[in-house]
Design a protein around this nucleic acid. Structure first.
Length: 269
DNA sequence: ACAGTAACCTGTTTGC
DNA sequence: TGCAAACAGGTTACTG
């Protein structure tokens, strides 16, 4: 489901169907999402799509005037339909193009579909977000500086979107393992050198996951029910009780900040 | 400003 | 087998 690599994959997947095309209609059949889908999304109708891109875990659709924001939440997915089909349960809205339909499905309803008049990055939900993990602004100096004086667990620190965006629960565990840092360690008590490792690990794991098309491309690519490619690459996530690949100790699972975390007590300090 | 927690939902898995 | 509890990839809002 939607971690940054999947949002990226989804955005790239729908882009060619949208850019340069006119939005003919937006059909909202179940507006109950994180926030009720507002009527003003209809302003997109009749407009041509200029750009489709991603910021944090938001998919942004830039129009000639205004912007659509889509968030997949925990369980959202988007499919491109090439021929008409009956909407199913949890299919909340469609974006109708001349030859295709973009269909949004979200059982848990933590997703969002919103409109912004001004550039999407100035929307209240996006305005105070931290840098993209794959951008130059996200480096050792930045992360080390932001961590000064912080006492919360480093795992929660890197999952805070105001610090850096796009690091979800899976990749937080993975990156900390790769960097050899214990997820419960206070963010302010980690050396600059170790933050260098962490920055590299975050970059590396996200890039690799994107290259693999995310962890559950199935949502987008026509479901065959098989888990995504990246699931096989996971080093600690979901491996509680199994042997660490580096030292063979049992991988532990612990709840940190209300989320399951996976780590090796030997390899992570 | 910071840290911790509750809350928003439904579907699937786990445990008795 | 049946049922209830626990859990799931995200984020905001509230509390102290």
């Amino acid at each position: 489901m939607p971690e940054l690599p999947e949002v990226e994959t989804t955005a790239r997947g729908i882009e060619p169907f949208l850019v340069g095309r006119d939005i003919q209609a937006i059909e909202v059949r179940d507006p109950r999402l994180r926030w009720p889908v507002p009527a003003n999304v209809q302003q997109a109708c009749g407009q041509k799509v200029a750009r489709v891109w991603r910021r944090a875990k938001y998919i942004l659709i830039d129009l000639e005037n205004g912007h659509l924001l889509i968030h997949l939440g925990m369980s959202g997915s988007i499919r491109v339909l090439t021929e008409p089909s009956q909407p199913g349960k949890h299919d909340h809205f469609d974006i109708l193009l001349e030859n295709h339909t973009i269909r949004f499905n979200d059982p848990r309803r933590f997703g969002a579909f919103l409109w912004s008049d001004s550039p999407a990055t100035s929307h209240p939900l996006l305005a105070s977000l931290g840098p993209e993990p794959l951008s130059d602004q996200f480096d050792t100096d930045y992360l080390y500086r932001r961590a000064r004086g912080r006492k919360l667990a480093v795992k929660n620190f890197i999952m805070d979107g105001r610090v850096v965006v796009g690091v979800g629960n899976i990749y937080a565990s993975e990156a900390l393992y790769m960097a050899g840092i214990h997820p419960s360690r206070a963010a302010g008590r980690i050396s600059a050198d170790r933050y260098t490792s962490l920055v590299n690990a975050i970059r590396d794991v996200l890039q690799r996951a994107i290259r693999h098309g995310g962890t559950s491309l199935r949502d987008f690519a026509g479901s065959d029910g098989t888990p995504g490619y990246f699931a096989q690459e996971l080093l600690v996530y979901g491996r509680a009780g199994q042997a660490c690949f580096q030292c063979s100790a049992d991988i532990r699972q612990k709840v940190i900040g209300q989320r399951s975390s996976f780590y090796c007590v030997n390899c992570q300090r």
